[in-house]
Design a protein around this nucleic acid. Structure first.
Lengths: 153, 153
DNA sequence: GTTTATGCAAAGGCTTTGCATTTCA
DNA sequence: TGAAATGCAAAGCCTTTGCATAAAC
């Protein structure tokens, strides 16, 4: 999907979500969504704040936090807590299901896919009667690069 | 394994770990380990602090945080970040591998096991050249109880 | 014209840090 | 005795909250 296409798509989804839930369609909300979908990878609130300030659009941190809640609610972004207290976000629409490998040495986060996770979700749903909304799988350890560095020293 | 047996076992592991890493064997550290292994389920630092205060042993929060780092390092406890900023811990020695179902409505955390997660770990290790130390899989959604309540209203 | 959202700054909660005191080796 | 750990309080960081102002409906 082209970038412009995706932007149009998520803007429409968000717009409908706001309408159906009686929330107002403010320019700040759409500007935030646009910025979120303009980049790849993970980001935290501070980075998003910085990016928007650099461009034309300045929003308050409070509005960023509020809007992220809305975007989480309509599944347009996902939130992760990898390490520390700071939450990490990523866009989630039309992005393939993936999980995370987190290096405990350098802090790098890599993505990987494994279809078996879907089977685990299904089983949890059936056996435990759980209505699954999303999951987050983090595998922590040492990445290839840091293993090599360790061996060298 | 009996409770006393397990206590003896983890105390020994911790003792050896401290020795090998040049850390001191303070009474606080062993008291904290004892308290951690005296209960089932998850806990946060504040709860651990409260429990130890109630008993005879009062340690500072700073020492709790420091000691948890040591216990994490020798794999005697695990740390999770389910929701919010507060870290949750659980003992991990001789405790079966399990993952977590987290209800987004009531906040309840249930455990479940699925052997396929081990296969995913192995694959990540082989394909990505990642040296896996531990993982955490959280499935978020609505628990059976909250589904029933929702239907009733 | 109401009601909701924004922005700012203050407050809050969890965690880390600095430093004097104590304790282990 | 010397180095490391403890305890306390302060500082830090991320996030939430309160309230006046602005904007959507």
């Amino acid at each position: 999907m082209m970038v412009a296409e995706q932007q149009a798509s998520v803007q429409r989804i968000f717009s409908e979500y706001l309408e159906q839930h009686g929330h107002r369609k403010t320019p700040e909300r759409f500007a935030i969504l646009t910025e979120v979908y303009a980049h790849e990878g993970h980001f935290d609130i501070e980075r998003l704040y910085g990016r928007m300030k650099l461009k034309k659009y300045r929003v308050s941190r409070a509005t960023l936090y509020n809007t992220m809640e809305l975007l989480l609610d309509c599944d347009l972004v996902r939130r992760h807590r990898f390490t520390g207290t700071q939450a990490q976000f990523e866009k989630s629409h039309a992005y393939r299901q993936h999980d995370h490998l987190i290096c405990t040495v350098c802090g790098d986060v890599a993505e990987f896919c494994d279809p078996r996770i879907q089977q685990i979700r299904n089983t949890a749903s059936e056996v435990m009667g759980f209505d699954v909304r999303y999951h987050t799988l983090q595998i922590h350890g040492t990445c290839r690069t840091c293993q090599a560095k360790r061996q060298a020293s």
